[in-house]
Design a binder for these strands. Structure first.
Lengths: 151, 151
DNA sequence: TTGACACTTGAGAATGATTCCTACTTAATG
DNA sequence: CATTAAGTAGGAATCATTCTCAAGTGTCAA
């Protein structure tokens, strides 16, 4: 038990070093809160969890470190399109091509992708499935060109 | 040309009736702005477009009607998770099962879904693809049960 | 170990996205 | 055409997120 704690701490300390981040207690607790939560939490939820261990922590610190973790690749975000609602008028099933840099979204016709079957694990959980979409994430032509110019 | 306009208008008028919505000019212009934009626009962007035709329109009206369109199924949203950042600590490739009602997200192991090949259309557009994810959308056990109780 | 310096924290103000409220129109219906 | 339910503009209110700054802490070389 204590071993696991210590080990987790060491792991995180190493990870910070790898990513050039200073190790702080706040960071450790925030990171652990995300890992321990199996529900893809929001920053607000993390804040609630972390406050149990560090009552004086500020919401701003949670946001700042979440951002740092995202920037350095310690964590990921579920969707690249949080922040603002994006609308869709094509009501027929189709897939998406997303640029991770400029967030542009291109439609891909359903027929261009071979059908995906529902995984058994989904049905086991009592889920009813209405549809699925495949999201291909990459970099669009423009953004690639722009990045080359810089470097 | 004029025919197409008239036809589009009639189409939209019919669609409103089908969904029990009053037909208004604002609604028509907002809807057309979404359909004409091929970039999965934000409400703000729609607002800018619509203002060219109806300078007096208010942003609130755009939001309200977008919401109405979403509620009635005239439009869809690209992601169910705009609004707040959702974090991911599982850095290995995997897929998601999403409840359209409570927005819960469950992970599905990559091995549970047969590999999807990249569509040619993506490559044609000069896109470089890093990864893909499949998102299965449906209703979780809890939400289904809750809905049954109501009705 | 220590000191300098850069990075981090907490608190609150500021911003951006979205919803709510209200008084004033307008569309639908008979 | 009159009634009535629904929609509109405008602004205030709310929620999520970022920014600012003064005070505190981690890092690294000596």
């Amino acid at each position: 038990m204590l071993d696991m704690r210590t080990q987790a701490l060491d792991n995180f300390r190493r990870r910070c070093k790898e990513h050039g981040l200073a190790f702080t207690f706040q960071r450790q607790v925030i990171y652990e809160a995300v890992v321990d939560s199996h529900e893809h939490p929001t920053p607000e939820l993390i804040y609630e969890q972390v406050r149990r261990r560090i009552p004086s922590i500020s919401l701003g610190t949670v946001y700042k470190n979440v951002k740092t973790f995202l920037d350095t690749g310690v964590l990921k975000e579920v969707t690249l399109h949080h922040g603002s609602l994006r609308l869709e008028s094509n009501m027929t099933p189709h897939h998406h091509l997303v640029c991770s840099s400029c967030k542009a979204i291109f439609d891909i016709d359903e027929s261009a992708v071979e059908p995906v079957h529902l995984p058994k694990s989904a049905l086991l959980k009592g889920f009813s499935i209405d549809q699925y979409r495949v999201e291909f994430v990459g970099e669009c032509k423009k953004c690639r060109a722009a990045r080359r110019h810089k470097s």
